[in-house]
């Protein structure tokens, strides 16, 4: 097994100024990862591939993760002056974390038989700052997987030789694996739906003007 944390420390000394952060995973799998700043991704990848002690020559998997904007509520204790007395008051502070897209790389070494080393890189946001450098010039196996992420998540990879949609057609505009994707409303309902599905099916199938009186009478 490789020690991700020591690799992080070595990277920090070898490539000073690069945005490298060790992300521990406290779960039983303990698959910790390295969070790399997008601009330094190529330099880090090249170092990991060339270093004689690690030689990560095999990029087995590239995948995307969509993180929506989320608000975290935290309770903070503050001292406040209430009626001339100093009191400790709990206050909830809302913190908004902007959404971002994340790309995860799994690296293995074939000659040294170790891995995986997990790299992550994040885009600035989910709308206009979605570019990351492509790792296809370093690992050829990234080509189709980056095209798939471009297709399904909308991350654009700078330096990719042929960045087109892989699974959906070229005219398609959405990114289906994003969490706010709205799929086309073409679901075919079963003949005997019930509950909320029945409501959706009614709105879908029968004109509401003719159906409305009969609906109030039944049940």
């Amino acid at each position: 097994m490789i020690d991700t944390e020591s690799i992080a420390n070595e990277l920090k000394t070898a490539l000073p100024g690069c945005g490298i952060e060790f992300v521990a995973n406290p779960s039983p799998s303990a698959q910790s990862s390295l969070l790399i700043q997008g601009t330094d991704l190529v330099a880090v990848a090249q170092w990991l591939k060339d270093h004689s002690e690690y030689r990560f020559d095999y990029l087995s998997n590239v995948t995307g993760v969509d993180h929506l904007e989320k608000t975290i509520k935290e309770k903070v204790k503050k001292t406040q002056v209430v009626d001339g007395e100093e009191q400790e008051v709990e206050e909830t502070v809302e913190q908004t974390i902007p959404g971002y897209l994340e790309v995860v790389y799994h690296l293995y070494s074939m000659p040294l038989r170790h891995g995986p080393l997990i790299l992550r890189a994040r885009t600035g946001n989910r709308s206009n700052d979605v570019a990351l450098p492509s790792l296809t010039p370093i690992w050829r196996s990234a080509e189709f997987q980056e095209r798939e992420i471009f297709d399904l998540y909308g991350v654009t990879f700078d330096g990719h030789p042929d960045l087109r949609r892989l699974l959906m057609w070229d005219e398609f505009e959405d990114h289906p694996m994003r969490k706010d994707y709205v799929e086309p409303d073409d679901y075919e309902y079963e003949p005997t739906p019930h509950g909320p599905v029945l409501e959706r099916a009614n709105a879908h199938q029968t004109p509401p003007s003719t159906d409305a009186p009969s609906e109030t009478q039944s049940d």
């Binding site: 086309p184 073409d186 075919e188 005997t192 739906p193 029945l198």
Partner: peptide, 25 residues
Amino acid sequence: QFGAHDLHPPSNPKTWTPPQSVRSQ
């Protein structure tokens, strides 16, 4: 045709009509 969100048209009314749910009548 390939549309921006779905195929256009999504179905051919000459060959297919959406099934009517039994309970909505």
